[in-house]
Write a protein that binds this DNA or RNA. Structure first.
Lengths: 111, 111
DNA sequence: TTCACCTATCGTTAATCGACGATAGACTAT
DNA sequence: ATAGTCTATCGTCGATTAACGATAGGTGAA
């Protein structure tokens, strides 16, 4: 009867005998991706990129979230390396880590 | 005393009176980013990009995870739009949705 | 039809996230 | 020194994730 097509190479085109190396970059990318996997964190990043402000307090004002919640998101962003915070007197000034952002773009771009 | 610097424009350079539009793209990007925010899902995407296989069973074989777990990840990837699955007889053939991937790259690149 | 195979879904469990209020710590200015 | 301000952390709670085994559903072959 030869159903649809004798060769059925419509989608699967196996070849290569690769075995997918341990993928250290998969770990890296997943962590960076996770950092931006929340609208609030993306908003923070955009805010910082716009240079509107780096001071925590101003970030909080721009967000419909409690101060402690924003602080948590900032902590996550710091842990991912995408953002850095430097203490400036009684307040904290946050900035984007350009190289980390570039790394994220590079890894996503390489997909 | 003038502590550190009278101008202190070292980090914060406020300007612009923007207000950050509602950010529909922040939602979109966060969803796409979330889809790749797990090493297993990145591995699946790479597997599909390499065309090594699109058949679910082969994907499972490449992963150190139970079949049901892989199926969950595939569901998440499908829901994000990054992956599509077409039924091919008794099995299912998964492929990358190139345009969704391009969209992800575009949104990340625009950060 | 019936059987075997492949995949999706269900139900469970432990762990993590996201949000909040309250509180502690650090620094300035009074 | 003390009070006031700004930020981080703690503790809590509900919701969600990630993982698994077991099972249901669908398809092709015998």
């Amino acid at each position: 009867m030869e159903k649809k097509s004798s060769v059925k190479t419509q989608c699967c085109d196996n070849g290569q005998e690769l075995t997918l190396p341990d993928d250290a970059t998969a770990e890296d990318l997943s962590k960076l991706a996770w950092a931006i996997a929340h609208p609030a964190r993306i908003r923070i990043i955009r805010l910082l990129l716009m240079k509107k402000s780096c001071v925590c307090g101003e970030i909080v004002e721009e967000m419909p979230l409690a101060q402690s919640t924003v602080s948590q998101h900032l902590k996550i962003l710091k842990e991912s390396g995408l953002v850095e915070g430097e203490i400036d007197g009684p307040r904290v000034c946050y900035c984007i880590n350009k190289s980390a952002l570039k790394q994220l773009k590079r890894l996503v771009g390489a997909l």
